[in-house]
Computed example of a mutant assay.
Amino acid sequence: MRYLIAETNWTMMTLAAELAANGTLMTRTDRPEDVEHFMRHGEADLLVLAADQIANRGMSLAALRRISPDMPIALVADKPQSEQIAAWLDAGADCVIDATRPPEEAVVTLQAVARRRLGLSRPQIVHGPLRIDLLTRKAYMLTCPLKLSPKLYELLEYLALRPGQLVTRAELLSHIYGLENEPDARVFDVYICNLRSCLQASAGAVDIDTVRGSGFRFAASDVAAAVAA
Rank of each mutant, 00 (worst) to 15 (best):
residue 2 R to G: 11
residue 4 L to D: 02
residue 14 T to L: 12
residue 16 A to F: 11
residue 18 E to T: 14
residue 19 L to C: 13
residue 25 L to F: 09
residue 29 T to S: 02
residue 31 R to T: 06
residue 31 R to E: 08
residue 32 P to V: 02
residue 33 E to S: 10
residue 34 D to K: 00
residue 34 D to C: 00
residue 34 D to A: 00
residue 35 V to A: 01
residue 38 F to S: 04
residue 39 M to T: 06
residue 43 E to A: 11
residue 44 A to L: 04
residue 45 D to K: 05
residue 45 D to W: 11
residue 48 V to M: 05
residue 50 A to C: 01
residue 51 A to K: 00
residue 52 D to I: 00
residue 54 I to T: 04
residue 54 I to F: 01
residue 55 A to T: 14
residue 60 S to P: 10
residue 61 L to R: 06
residue 61 L to F: 09
residue 63 A to D: 14
residue 68 S to I: 03
residue 68 S to V: 03
residue 70 D to T: 14
residue 70 D to P: 03
residue 71 M to H: 09
residue 71 M to Q: 11
residue 72 P to H: 08
residue 76 V to Q: 02
residue 81 Q to W: 01
residue 83 E to M: 08
residue 83 E to G: 02
residue 83 E to L: 13
residue 84 Q to R: 05
residue 85 I to A: 05
residue 86 A to Q: 11
residue 87 A to W: 06
residue 87 A to M: 10
residue 87 A to H: 10
residue 88 W to D: 05
residue 91 A to N: 10
residue 92 G to T: 08
residue 93 A to S: 11
residue 94 D to K: 08
residue 96 V to S: 07
residue 97 I to H: 00
residue 97 I to L: 15
residue 98 D to N: 08
residue 106 A to N: 08
residue 109 T to V: 09
residue 109 T to E: 11
residue 109 T to W: 02
residue 111 Q to S: 09
residue 114 A to D: 04
residue 115 R to Y: 11
residue 115 R to C: 10
residue 116 R to N: 12
residue 116 R to I: 06
residue 117 R to P: 04
residue 117 R to F: 13
residue 118 L to K: 15
residue 120 L to V: 08
residue 121 S to T: 14
residue 123 P to Y: 04
residue 124 Q to K: 13
residue 124 Q to P: 00
residue 126 V to K: 14
residue 126 V to C: 13
residue 127 H to L: 10
residue 128 G to L: 09
residue 129 P to E: 07
residue 130 L to A: 09
residue 134 L to R: 04
residue 134 L to H: 03
residue 141 M to D: 01
residue 142 L to Q: 11
residue 143 T to F: 01
residue 146 L to T: 00
residue 151 K to M: 15
residue 152 L to E: 15
residue 152 L to K: 14
residue 155 L to H: 12
residue 155 L to M: 15
residue 158 Y to N: 03
residue 161 L to Y: 03
residue 161 L to E: 08
residue 164 G to P: 14
residue 165 Q to D: 08
residue 167 V to K: 01
residue 167 V to C: 03
residue 169 R to M: 14
residue 171 E to W: 10
residue 174 S to T: 07
residue 174 S to V: 04
residue 184 D to T: 12
residue 185 A to Q: 13
residue 185 A to E: 12
residue 186 R to L: 07
residue 186 R to W: 03
residue 188 F to Y: 11
residue 189 D to F: 04
residue 191 Y to T: 03
residue 191 Y to R: 11
residue 195 L to K: 13
residue 195 L to I: 15
residue 196 R to Y: 06
residue 197 S to V: 07
residue 198 C to I: 03
residue 199 L to T: 10
residue 201 A to M: 05
residue 202 S to T: 13
residue 205 A to M: 03
residue 205 A to F: 01
residue 206 V to D: 09
residue 207 D to C: 05
residue 208 I to K: 06
residue 213 G to F: 12
residue 213 G to T: 13
residue 215 G to Y: 05
residue 215 G to I: 07
residue 222 D to E: 11
residue 223 V to F: 14
residue 223 V to K: 12
residue 225 A to T: 10
residue 228 A to Q: 13
residue 228 A to Y: 09
